[in-house]
Structures are given as C-alpha cells and as structure tokens.
Design a protein around this nucleic acid. Structure first.
Lengths: 332, 332
DNA sequence: AAGGTTTGTGCAAACGTTTGCTGTGGAAAA
DNA sequence: TTTTCCACAGCAAACGTTTGCACAAACCTT
C-alpha cells in the first residue's frame, strides 16, 4: 500500500517510466492516446509525484525561506500573510526561520537555507546583525535575497522599506501643526537602519521647525517594557513635554502605559503620535493618531521582488520605499 | 565554482564516496585518520550536504507542516513561536500553509504535504471544515497529524485544546460571584468544536446557577466587526444585561468597541470578562479581567505530541487539555 | 601455524524523477 | 519504389546520498 510511483504506472501500462513522466507533464512527444491512459490511471491510483525526487533531479526545492527575528505580534501578521500568499500563488512554499534576534541563529539559518537549496530568501535582520557577511554563502551561490523592514544600508540586494525620514517628518510636522514644540521621542534599536533613519528624520524636522533638539527628550528602547520605562524617565526629566512620538507599535504601547501610569489624559495633557503597522492604535480610547504603513504592502512587495529576481526579470538591486499616510484619530 | 559534493571530496582524497559519507556521519566503521582527513577537507571546501539528495535517499524531508486558517494577530503569535522553536530544536523545519478558512485550500494543502513528504502536520482547522475526510491522504500514508486549537470532535489523532467547558465555567462563575445574573454572551463560529464547547459550558453554568438561559442574550460572530454589531444588538434587545462574556480576543475587542459606542463605563455600568490568549485585555483601561490560556503552551504541547508520534513514542491518540487561570483585572 | 575475528575500505544498488539520445514503424515526399 | 521525415516510445544516465554486502589485510585466538 505504498504510494504509487511513475515506475508502478509504467509497469501496469507496459510503458517506460520516461514515457509516463512525459505523459504526466503533457510533453508533446507523447501520443494523446497514451497520455490519456497514463493520466487516467494516475488519477485512479491517486498518484502524486514524489517531490523529493523531482527536487533532486531538477536541483531546486520549491522553497522560499523567510528569515525573521521573531514572531511577535508587532511583526505585523499581515506582512506575513502577504508573503505567504504571494509565494503560494507562484507555486513555492514558505519556510520560516527565526533568529530570536541573535546573530548566531541567523548564521545557522543561512546555512540551513543553503542545505535545503531554497530558491530565495526574504530577510528581516536580527538586531544583532551589524553587517551582512554571513549572507555570503547564499550570495555566492547566487541565491536571490531580498531584505525588508529591518535592513542595513550596505546591502547589494533588493530591499523594501518605507521612507523613514519622510514618515517621521509627517508625524512630527503634524504635532508641530497642532502647536506642540516640546516633543518626546521613543526610538528602537539604534543599530538598525530603520531606527537611525527615523531618528535622523526626527532631528531633521526639528531643525526645520527651529525647535532645538534635546537629548533628554528622547530615548532608545528594545521592547515595550523598556519603552514604558524610558517614557517615564523622559517625563520625569523633562516634564514640560506636551507630546510623544513613538517609532513603532511596541513603543507606542510602552508610552501609553507610562502615560496612564502618570495619570495623564490623552490628548488634553499629553499628545501621542506613532508609526504603526498593526492594530495597536485602534485599541486605545481615544484611538492613537498615527502614520500608517501597510504591512501587507511591504510583504507583498518584498515577495514580488524576490520572485522577480528568481525569474531573472530583475537584474539590479532595487530599493523600494513604500509610501505612508497620516491617520488622524484622537490622540493629538 | 559549484558546491562541492561528497564525490568531489572522494576524488580529491582518493577515496570512495561511501567512505566519505561514513566519515562525515561519524560512522564507527571508518578509521580516525581518514575521518579527520575527510572532515578537514570538507571544512576547508565549505562542504554542506545536499539535503535534497539526503531527503530522497532517506525518504523523508525533515519538514513539518503547519496548516492554519490565517495569520491574524489573534492566532496568538506565541503559539507560532512555540511551534517553531520546538520543531527547530528537534532538527526539523516548519513550513506554513494557510487555508484562508476555505476547505478547498485546506485540501490543496493536504496534497502539498503529501507531495513534499512532510513528516508531520499540525492543524488548526479552517472554519469551513465540517469533517476530516480530506486528511485521509495523509493518514493513509501514516503521516502523523496533530490537531490543535480549532478541532473537530470525531478525530482519531492527537489533539491539544483547552478544557473549554471548564474555562467558560470559570468565567461565568466569576461574573456570578460578583453578583451578575443577566449576562450577555458572544461566541464565535458555531461550526467549531471550540465554540460549541464553550457555548455548552456557558449554558451548563447558567443552569447550575439557576439563571435562565435567554436567546436574546447571546450571539455568534465570525470576527471583531461582526462581534461589535452583535454586541450592540444584544444591548438593544436586552438592555438589562450587566455583563458580557466573550469567548475570544476578537470578540472581546468587538464587545469593547460596542460598549464604548454606547458610552457605557466599564465596570460600573457593564462588566466584561473574556477568554484570551493574546495581549488584548492589557490594551484597555481598565484592563479586562479574563481567563488566560497560554498560547505558547498550546503550541509547545502540540509540537511535542507531534514529535512524539513521529518518533513512535506515542502510539495512541492523546487528547490533551491544558489548564487555564483567572486573571482578575479591572473590568468586572 | 592454521583458523577465526576484527577493522577499514570499496562496490554497486537504490531513492523516483527527468531528459538527451537512439531507434522503430509508418506516412509523406521524391 | 526508394528516400526522407516525423511521431512516438524506449534506453540509460544523471541528480547526490546512503547502505548492505563483499573483501582484503591485520589482528587475535588456540
């Protein structure tokens, strides 16, 4: 009762395995009559090709790997869904590898990609990754790699990000439009491009607005918990601030927690604006005004780029920056 | 500049490929001296075994599939993280297949599992799945399957759920203890065991408490949006209710939205208690009292069971029910 | 010293496909 | 009728490993 193979079908039909193979793949070299006989029997036996053998023979795996730091709720599930859908629609399958933000796991994962002969890799870097040399084993083998979300500047592959400077400008400008001039800022891991860019944007806009930048108004934090602590610290060191800018959902949650702990009312006593790719802003009352970027679009675009590179339709490293929009809710 | 193979190493070292293979796998039949020579050269060449060939030869893929309805934020990412970690730690890799809650995709995904020769499958059913016959192709081939979270009663494989009746009892009992006797209930897809069980628990507890069950106090909803509408409807049809029970995070979000829309204060004017495996209860102010079950534990247990079945340590279908606890916050 | 055992290596088949090449019979062209 | 060509099917090698078996040499037994 084992799975039928091409050879089984060949034996039953007094044919050569090669003919059966061609028949199943609708190769023109096989007569319509035999093709039908083969396909009918295959159907009847519930034949499904042994993908393992196909893979070996064709020297590819049909797999695309997603290397990601971790599956937290703020790694927008829609990024994920978009990638899966795009990949699935093109006949590939997705395998997920988490780095837990460690470099060592990321290196291992690269090796795994190589061993499994994955045909493309989507990467959102671990925060420990300071450079990209550990991707060499893949690039050497000409395995297409697309970086997204958390990237590093010195990359020679495609990448998908959002225009971090612009997005931050949008947020801070909005605060300024509403009269805020003493603005606290909460930023993520300072090693990541995303953080550096948003921080740069923040300072740049302040300068344009003739608002002096003050160290004590800003802080860096790795997660929601730290974000909350840092927000508290800022409010204590600089009680005069009238608004917070947070560069991610995690930090938004942290900031709101700190604000509630301080028993300040939003937006009357303190305003908050953030950058969000999740549902967090909708959870609160009032809902948090934010710059929304579509996680779905990031995922979809990254997957599309990767597929383009795999099909050799895209030759040169493309760096896509997605646009975002201000969503005015009640927190400013 | 191609990847070196075992045959390359053999040629370079004037050995037979079989010896090289054994050397690399630390087979005792090979002398320490040759083993070292082989391993050193392998290291030097950056040899990595061609997993595709290994798979074919060993007739397994090292893959475990996760069949899931969709990657929404309420499919607790920690379930996911737990599964990935457990699977990874045991040398397997995870491939994700989404059904988008449709039966047709679920069937396709089962076929894909078969073709890829996955060694085990973790399933949280699509809501369209009313029975399990489409898993026959896997079960026929003795591919281990473990159902979790969204299951159906008539399954002969292992499953991991929580004790839905008990969990609901805990919640409703808590409301009753606080004096509530007119309780609204929001439930999910009535086709799913999880819903039926929780609904059964709900009615059962009401009966034990001598509270008459009223149709107009309860509703079923598929998502957060519908949940909100249904909650509104309940509050209009039965304005006397003093508390809501919600069986999932989605519905909790919906209910809170409805309550806020009605401008009722929690918990003074209306109480709410829910079952949660996510962060939703923590988002609100006051935080929502809930029964917490650990998504991480569900995922980890499901993965452990699956690995047990794969290793043939577990022979009979085990049905694990995880325990939960009441988290008293400010909404009751 | 004859026999037996151990140790290390090689040979070849197998896993299930795919594919370039060869070969056949018959139809079309000369 | 002979030649040319085409449609169709078979043969065999290949993808890179793993593994049962055979075998030689060296090592122990009596």
């Amino acid at each position: 009762m084992n799975r039928p193979t091409i050879t089984d079908i060949a034996r039953l039909l007094q044919l050569n395995p090669s003919t059966v193979s061609r028949a199943l793949n609708n190769h023109p070299d096989v007569s319509p009559e035999t093709r039908n006989r083969v396909q009918e029997l295959a159907q009847e036996l519930g034949y499904a090709p042994n993908q393992l053998a196909v893979n070996l023979r064709k020297r590819h795996s049909g797999l695309i790997a997603l290397l990601v730091s971790e599956m937290n709720m703020f790694f927008n599930p829609s990024v994920f869904r978009a990638i899966e859908q795009e990949v699935y629609a093109n006949g590939y399958h997705l395998i997920i590898l988490q780095s837990n933000n460690t470099l060592i796991r990321e290196k291992q994962n690269v090796q795994i990609c190589r061993q499994l002969a994955v045909e493309g890799v989507l990467v959102s870097l671990a925060s420990e990754a300071q450079e990209l040399s550990h991707f060499a084993p893949l690039l050497d083998q000409k395995v297409p790699v697309v970086f997204f979300d958390r990237i590093l500047p010195q990359n020679h592959s495609c990448s998908v990000t959002i225009d971090d400077v612009e997005i931050t400008r949008l947020a801070v400008q909005h605060l300024a439009d509403k009269g805020h001039r003493r603005i606290g800022g909460l930023f993520g891991d300072p090693n990541l491009t995303i953080t550096r860019e948003r921080f740069r944007g923040f300072k740049q806009v302040l300068q344009e607005l003739d608002i002096p930048f003050e160290e004590k108004h800003i802080a860096f934090a790795q997660d929601s918990e730290q974000g909350s602590q840092q927000a508290l610290k800022i409010m204590e060191q600089a009680p005069a601030i009238t608004a917070f800018f947070t560069m991610s959902d995690e930090l938004m949650v942290g900031a709101v927690q700190a604000i509630e702990q301080k028993r300040l009312r939003i937006p009357e006593e303190i305003a908050i604006i953030g950058i969000s790719d999740g549902f967090a802003p909708e959870f609160y009352n009032p809902k948090i005004t934010h710059i929304r970027h579509s996680g779905y679009e990031v995922g979809a675009e990254a997957a599309r780029l990767l597929l383009g590179v795999i099909r050799e339709e895209i030759k040169d490293p493309l760096h896509v920056q997605l646009e975002c929009r201000l969503v005015e809710l009640g927190s400013v």
